[in-house]
Computed example of a mutant assay.
Amino acid sequence: MRVVVSGGGTGGHIYPALSLIKEIQKQQPESKILYIGTEKGLENDLVQREGIPFKTIHITGFRRKISLENVKTVVRFIKGVKQAKKMMKLFKPDVVIGTGGYVCGPVVYAAAKMRIPTVVHEQNSVPGLTNKFLSKYVQKVAICFEEASSFFPTEKVVFTGNPRASEVKEINAQAGKSSLGLQENKKTVLIVGGSRGAKPINDAFLSIVGEVGGKDYQVVYVTGNVHYDAVMEKVKEQGNPDNVIIKPFLHNMPDVLGAVDLIVARAGATTLAEVTAIGLPSILIPSPYVTNNHQERNARALSSKGAAILRLEKDMDGSQLLEDINKVFTEDGKWEMMKKEALQLGVPSAATNVYQLLKDISR
């Protein structure tokens, strides 16, 4: 099977694509993959690091208000379609999939106009402009949250889950514990605000780090590279408790997720795919700075089922965070119930599901 994959802009679009590619290569080692992204996007680094054939087009996203830049974007879109068509005439794909981000627009649109079978994969509960536009032209729309189905033509929607969930099926929890020096017989909380960190989560935790030092659980606190030095200075002022482990970034996140008992995090689609796949209880603090407030919608999909505690950023402070952590660990049956509900929402076979969808519609 020859597959063109396109997705870019953020890790939330790129990591599912990479997980899907691994599944395709596992199922069909003889398969051929071409990834089409942008030169300046994060995908340029992440995809080529995996040794996947990679080509670029130049495209920008639409602004949500009237702007001269939108006229330029239309011109770039037309040029991008022409570029993508040339690439596909040479590559001759059996199927094309877009995993989100504006780069998918000209790539998937070009494939649809060439009558190549096409799919878009929507990770969030509220889709972005590109996927809503492309849904008019593709054969199928793969979704991860049932809430997203109302935005797309009913006959095209297929619930597959997020391929990233399949990555955590192969976790090594013991390796995760060893890499951080965690104590075996203590409950562990992982607090993380994304690769660049989240200052409101940092501030909330710093206000209670002294109290956390007296608890019978341990905390792994990932600050983000940008905030690490400033956080360490403040933690040292409070005695640097022995049960608090602070890191700027984790490169082995799947293994660490398997080693902890509770996560405090934003509500990005990739994070939620991972935690539901392994049934990890969560306290979710969605970013209010994302398109269509989709992180809050993502989080509510879990909190409404009892798999997570949802706290809006405006309502979060140190005392609330400490209260929520204590509730999960001390309230009778709370942790067990959250784990059970998270597992029921998880789709660990998601990568296989998307692969099978591509196989079914490929020419």
Results as ranks from 00 to 15, higher is better:
19 S>I: 04
195 S>F: 15
220 V>L: 02
7 G>S: 13
38 T>Y: 05
50 E>I: 02
51 G>C: 06
167 E>T: 04
190 L>C: 07
296 E>V: 12
348 P>Y: 13
2 R>V: 06
4 V>Q: 04
229 D>M: 08
92 K>C: 11
260 V>C: 06
259 A>L: 02
200 P>I: 10
246 I>H: 11
152 F>I: 03
241 P>D: 09
296 E>A: 15
348 P>A: 13
309 I>S: 06
61 G>I: 12
216 D>C: 06
321 L>A: 03
45 D>N: 14
357 L>I: 08
92 K>A: 10
90 L>F: 10
182 L>K: 10
124 N>V: 15
64 R>K: 12
130 T>H: 10
319 S>D: 07
329 F>D: 04
204 A>W: 07
294 H>K: 11
135 S>D: 12
263 I>H: 02
151 F>Y: 11
18 L>I: 06
39 E>V: 08
325 I>T: 05
60 T>V: 07
100 G>A: 12
168 V>M: 08
109 Y>Q: 08
86 K>Y: 01
161 G>E: 09
306 G>F: 03
276 T>I: 11
60 T>S: 15
249 F>L: 07
167 E>A: 06
162 N>V: 14
304 S>M: 09
234 K>D: 05
332 D>M: 13
23 E>W: 00
152 F>R: 01
117 P>E: 13
156 K>I: 09
359 K>R: 13
81 V>A: 04
179 S>K: 13
341 E>D: 04
213 G>F: 10
